[in-house]
Every structure is written in C-alpha cells, then in structure tokens.
Design a protein around this nucleic acid. Sequence first.
DNA 1: ATGAATTTTCAGTAATTACTGAAAGTTCTG
DNA 2: CAGAACTTTCAGTAATTACTGAAAATTCAT
Lengths: 186, 186
Amino acid sequence: MSPLVRSFVAHFGEMGSRWGINRTVGQIYALIYVSSRALHADEIAEQLEFSRSNVSMGLKELQAWRLVRLRHQAGDRREYFDAPADAWEVFRTLAEERRRREIEPTLTMLRNALMEEAGSEEDRVAQERMRDMHDLIEMLTTWFDDVQRMDAKTLAQLMRMGSKVQKLLEVASKVTSLGSAKQAAE
Amino acid sequence: MSPLVRSFVAHFGEMGSRWGINRTVGQIYALIYVSSRALHADEIAEQLEFSRSNVSMGLKELQAWRLVRLRHQAGDRREYFDAPADAWEVFRTLAEERRRREIEPTLTMLRNALMEEAGSEEDRVAQERMRDMHDLIEMLTTWFDDVQRMDAKTLAQLMRMGSKVQKLLEVASKVTSLGSAKQAAE
DNA sequence: ATGAATTTTCAGTAATTACTGAAAGTTCTG
DNA sequence: CAGAACTTTCAGTAATTACTGAAAATTCAT
C-alpha cells in the first residue's frame, strides 16, 4: 500500500469508529473505494494485516450497507469486491441506509409516543417536544426524497445557486396566482 | 419518569450508540430535551439510575456538543441544564459540530493527499477517487452554509416546493441572459 | 479562613465490542 | 462424488470503552 492510500485508509478507520461503523470496516471500505480494480478477501486481509475471518465479516457488513458490490472474474472462483466510484451515489446509498436503520424507527417511536394519552403536564410538554422533532425529521426526509428524485443537472444547478435561490423564490411568488394579488398591493 | 418519557429516553440511548455518542449520553440528552424545566445533575442521576460521576461526564460531553446549556437558578448553587427546544436549531448545531469534528479533518486529509505526487498508476486512480469525494463534500458543505444563511421562511418555502423547484429552475433559465439563446433554439 | 455544598477527576473494574484461529460449510472441478 | 478452493461461523480471547466510588478540587456563605 502506498503512503497515499495508507493515510486515506487510516483516516477512514478513525472516522468509521466515530460513526457506528467499526474501524476495520471503515478501512476495508476505504481500500476498496480507492482501488482501481475489484479486490478479493485475501488481498484485503494481506494489505490491511487483518485475519481472513475479520475481512469476511467486514465485507458482509459493507454489503449490508450496499457500499460494496460482489463481482466475479471469469476463470476465478474467488469473490471480488468493488465500490461505486460515483461519490454522489455513495452519499445517496448512505443516506438511504441510515434512513432505514435510524430515521424510520425513530419516527415510529415518536408516532407511538404521540398517540399516547398524556398522563400529566410533564407528559404534555414531552409530547410537544417530540412532535416538533417528529415534524422536523419528516420534513427533512420528505424534502430529501424530492431532492433524490431530481436529475443531476437540476440538482447541480440548485446547489450552484445556493442562497441566490431566495431571490428566485421572491420573484416566483410574484408571478404565481397566489402572489399576483400581493404583487398588485405592493 | 413516565412510560412516555422512558421510551423516548431508551430509544435515544440506542440511537446514540449507533452514532459515535455513547448510550448514557444519549439518554441524558433525551431526558433534558423533553423536560419542561432545567434539571440538575443529581436529578438526572437519580432518574436514570446512573452514578453522579457518569452524569457529570455526560453533561460535559453534551456541553462540548453545544446540545445543552448551563443555567443557574436564583438562590441555588447547583448547575441546571436545559436544551434548546427548537428542533431546527438542534439540527443545525449537530450539523455544525459534525462538520467541525469530521468533515473539516476529512477535507484536510484529502487536500493533503491530492497535493502529493502520484507515485504510480494505482496512486493516480486513488487520487482521482479522492478528488471526487473531496469535491462532493465541499459542494455539500458550501451548499449547506448557504441554506443556513437563508431565513426560516425562504427555507420552509423551498422545502414545501420540493422537486417542483425543478420547474421553477427551468423557467428561470429561460429568462436569464444565458438561457435566452437556448430558448430561441428550442 | 473554615467548612458545607457541589462538581470534577481518575484509577480500578465491569461491560461491551472487536478479532482471531480452528472448524464447519459451500461451491466448483475433474 | 472426492477433494480442492474458497467462504463463513463461532467460541474464546484480546482490546476498547463505559462506569463507578473515592478522593480532590472548586465555589460560595459566613
């Protein structure tokens, strides 16, 4: 492993452990991500100096996260793994998985809590806070769904605009049916 | 603690441990967040059945994340803690802290790696992947900065629009100087 | 200053999580 | 279908992380 790859892999190990992902899994992913070709488990074990079984478990987890893909090479029985190179795709996958694993269960818990009859003033306040949290999460995820549905071009355009979109919205509101009366008043 | 609060606290404990945050810290935060008034460390220790010192450490960490605020009550020497109730503010704080702790160091690492001379074809490919990742992260954070600078009204409007913003952008591009030639061609 | 009330630190221990090697399982080839 | 090539599982152990209680430090009132 070159020093370049080594530092990338090490950094991802550290970062992985700050997220729920464990260090070795982060390193395995990093190695596959920067690699120009698909790798098989023995190569990974050798390069990172992990046991073969550790690599096996790590790959299983990365597959569960859909961050790596299983590949087969003609005339070779071993399983090879590579990772999508498109960073935006990776980001999207991560977002989807986190949503499924963390966001959805949280929303379910909050909804259940909000269905309960508040037994006290304390509970009433608690429910109020939970409702705010629920509504924010729902808004953010709905919005993110919409963003995902946009094509890459629109998205890039929107991002490039940044806060200038504010101006655009102001203008837009003046030409929509709702805005026209307001425009006349101004 | 009512069953309502108990389940909220328990859930946050679980979720905390999936993020880098440890379980007890998650529970302490959850308790403070849903509470109608500021709490002091002994109350928290008693309610969650943690040792006083564990609570002390947890509060220190939550303060470092800027998720709780230290308060003083007149005529009481103890330190009370509460949490901002506005969910959007909480989200923003979390995003800022994660950025400082995780995103910025990652960008630094990537920039350093990209300054290095690639010593091999393998390194060249690795740098290419790192550049993609760097550019995506930078785009997302720049964009997020812009979003943060928007006022709440614009933001809500933008979110409510969701993917309909695509139509708006199409229209906008036709009335800008750059878009006018394109429009003529169509 | 004294000491009571409170918070923090930290060394030791408990609990959890990660990792390994050996064994079992699977898949393919001849 | 034997056995070679490869992957997975899992019980045991190592490493890490979390938690506690005792002691030290801080803060404040008198």
